[in-house]
Amino acid sequence: MNAITANELISGAVVYLYENGDFGVDLQLAKLFGADEQDVQEAMLEKTLANPRLVSVEAISVEVSETGTVWANRLREQIRANGPTVGGFERQTLEGADHVSL
């Protein structure tokens, strides 16, 4: 499965495309695209790319565990989703940035 991710322009924060078309920081709320939804994914990706408030737009590969937790497959994406693994720093928030949606 895939999700769509980007960094928000003003804060730089990592965001994901949600079901309702909003972008937010929680991977658990991300809209997931199955293997049979390539077309929808492409269309959404295109729209996201066109949004001037989003940079470094990408589709990333994820899996859903038995308990329903969404996991990014690459370590890089796990770190983007959870913050640095050292130093105890929280992830960047969207504070100071306005609402952003498709």
């Binding site: 960094n7 990592v14 940079v55 770190i79 640095p84 960047q92």
Partner: peptide
Amino acid sequence: LMNGLYLQLHAY
């Protein structure tokens, strides 16, 4: 970039 501002994983 000319002004030293990069985008990294979590932030600028």
